[in-house]
Amino acid sequence: MAILVYAEHDNQHLKSETSKLITAAQKMGGDIHLLVAGENVGDIAQDAAKISGVAKVIVADNNAYAHQLAENIADLVLELGKAYSHILAAATTTGKNFMPRVAALLDVAQISDIIDVESDDTFVRPIYAGNAIATVKTSDAIKVVTVRAAAFDAASAEGSAPIENVETVKLAEKSAFVSESLTESERPELTAADVIISGGRGMQNGENFKLLEGIADKLGAAIGASRAAVDAGFVPNDMQVGQTGKIVAPQLYIAVGISGAIQHLAGMKDSKIIVAINKDEEAPIFQVADYGLVGDLFEVLPELESSL
């Protein structure tokens, strides 16, 4: 039994999800091979080799994989994956994009977004925006699984696995990369941050998100948002936390001017400590908050910034 894990990266850095995937894989049992596919990913492969528990790093370095196009990545993983008992990827927009293709072409089910591993064929996953937790067992010979990285601890970085290159190039003809506009930020990524401060519709406009920035700087926090704030154009889509945005579980989550709709809670209610700042004392967010502060955010935020 061996497990093929797909490394999450952005062609520059290995993402923190990857070492969490390794922890999930270890719970399934078996040799763990980590696949790094991308363009100019030599340094990333070096970092991948250091993750404890990895037996081998496989590198597919080619322009065809530069933008993680689902068609190309799926065909690569399919070709390599047939030799494995499990294929794992993070439940990120990359993993969600190509993994169902791998499953379909192997004629197996995909188990999406697992938060725990009961055994090598039985997994725990949230359904209904996390309002129910299902334990499911698959009878497929090859288990295709996406993993909610936030639910697993990171494996340490004390390993030194061998690195092997594969020359396989898969290039689909019917889909092509056109362009990308990626948000540049000096702050930690939402899915990797220990502290997150998020703003909702109560922020009123994008300019007011500056009120969160000062606090984020002091706490080393990432900044998130509710769907309402993204829909209204205050901030870009990659900041959305929730059922259809990013799922996060930081040590501290501060929700500012967010009412606490179930779809938002689905993305953050596994945070260790939740703070809610809202002027409406009936707001549902207070039901999940460890510390609630009823007040006007425009008064509370400057005061909070100066007292940190």
Binding site: I111, N131, A132, I133, Y291, V294, V300, L308
Partner: peptide, 26 residues
């Protein structure tokens, strides 16, 4: 190919407390 073994409610968070002001929160 998938059988559901069980479906359970998620762990409930304990309702927390309200703090009076920023100083108490910090």
């Amino acid at each position: 190919h998938v059988s559901v073994i069980k479906v359970t409610p998620p762990p409930q968070r304990e309702g927390g407390i309200k703090v009076a002001d920023v100083a108490e929160l910090v």
